[in-house]
């Protein structure tokens, strides 16, 4: 699960080699609109949303396989 979260964030690295994913789209849009902060901030929020959803999924999964009487 940790690996999934790390990989999810590492997908942003392909922006450096000019692949049009979320971060690169945000960069280009921010440059055309002359508001880079806004667009990077929005991209950051979207990534946060994705990790949050993944994290909730993990919690549900953990709860469903948990033994009765064991916390965590």
């Amino acid at each position: 699960m940790n690996l999934w979260l790390v990989l999810l964030k590492d997908t942003s690295l392909v922006a450096v080699i000019a692949f049009d994913e979320l971060l690169r789209t945000a960069k280009v849009a921010g440059e055309t609109e002359r508001e880079p902060f806004l667009f990077f901030f929005a991209a950051g929020l979207l990534y946060l949303l994705m990790t949050w959803v993944s994290d909730r999924g993990r919690q549900r999964l953990e709860r469903s396989v948990q033994l009765v009487g064991h916390s965590r």
Partner: peptide
Amino acid sequence: YVFQGTPLLIQLWLVYYGLAQF
């Protein structure tokens, strides 16, 4: 949570390119 949940690249670009707009 925020710093672990977002890519480092976005954090770098947000501060370096983003803040310069103000």
